[in-house]
Amino acid sequence: MISIKGLRKVFTSENKELTAVDDLTLDIKEGEIFGVIGYSGAGKSTFIRLLNRLEEPSSGNVVIDKQEITALKANELRTARQDIGMIFQHFNLLWSRTVEDNIAFPLEIAGVPKAERVNRVQELIRLVGLSGREKAYPSQLSGGQKQRVGIARALANNPKVLLCDEATSALDPETTNAILDLLVDINQNLGLTIILITHEMHVIRKICHRVAVMEQGKIVEQGDVLEVFTHPKEKVTKKFVAQVMGSDEHDQSEELYYLIENFKKGKLIRLHFLGETTNQTLISQLAKNFPVDINILQGKITQTQAGGYGTLVIQFSGDSSEIEKAIQFIQKETSVEVEVIKDAK
């Protein structure tokens, strides 16, 4: 659906060059929600503006639905942008226009007849949950309502791609979740490809299928969200995962470090649950089948679009041979990953 090759953007100021996006290559599948995460200054907002040429690339090319965006002339680009909706962190609404007039604006530019515009606007107002607010002005709306207007406006011309530049970072957590739920509904019901830029890992966790991590203008890691959560490779990725999982870059919280240092008996085990395994009654099975004592010390679970991911730290104590049998049972009979943190023999 979207193919990006060798994309680069260099800004020049006072005879100094700043490379904001550096040789970025990426493929995004049709109908997926693809997240791009990075800290401030990573180049992610410049990247997303290069996709519809709100910023002109220094080099490289972008192909969306078999059309090379970077090769289009000005009049061709105006037409192509109708297939690329965009929503912004600070809404970018027209403050002198009502909700329905804001949504109708791109339809006016596209030359859509008035009767058709009216029907389309009402359809979009229902879709984003703004019925009854048609005549309100932006100053009369909450942050979440403003972003719903922004989403409706971005969808006005039935785009194939929706670009979201920090679309929830100006919103409170409850409103953020509501907007993310709306984006998921749009993705599923309209089959829309969504590219979402953020610095918040819980946004990636909640709605994205795949993710790319940006640092200093480059993509340093990418993959399925669940895989990135469970096996982060880069230091920056581990920091983002820690936002959600509550662990530091070495995956050892202060509590766990204390447990390790003071562990004197048996085996200290960390279990990694993926997808459907998060619903398994594993501890109950172990207690019934093996004469060992099991003490649950620490646990965390989170949900992604691809399923759940969780860790559980437990203490096994008792006969060493029975402990080994219990561990072998987990390894052979389940898909739960086992990590022995400490063996206090």
Rank of each mutant, 00 (worst) to 15 (best):
V211R: 03
P173D: 11
N289I: 14
L72S: 05
L155T: 02
E249S: 12
E276F: 13
D23T: 11
T334L: 11
F273N: 03
F105L: 00
D251R: 09
V112Q: 00
V21R: 07
L162A: 05
A306S: 14
E17L: 15
G60P: 08
A306F: 04
H250N: 13
T25E: 01
E200H: 07
T334F: 12
I64V: 14
F91N: 00
D172G: 10
D22E: 08
T98N: 06
Q89T: 07
I283D: 00
D165K: 07
A326R: 15
N158D: 02
I2V: 10
V161P: 07
G150N: 04
D185S: 11
R126C: 10
L268S: 02
A110V: 01
A344S: 15
D251C: 13
R126A: 12
I4W: 02
H272R: 15
E234G: 06
L190I: 02
P113L: 05
F11S: 07
G35S: 07
A20K: 08
Q216P: 08
V63P: 05
M201P: 08
G246V: 13
L196W: 04
G191N: 03
Q82R: 15
E55D: 07
L77H: 07
K160V: 01
D101T: 03
V161K: 08
S142E: 01
E108Q: 08
L155G: 01
H231F: 12
V10D: 11
Q222W: 08
V211S: 12
N92A: 15
K114W: 05
V184H: 04
I179S: 02
V211E: 01
L259I: 14
I194A: 03
N15G: 10
Q67F: 02
I204E: 00
S335W: 09
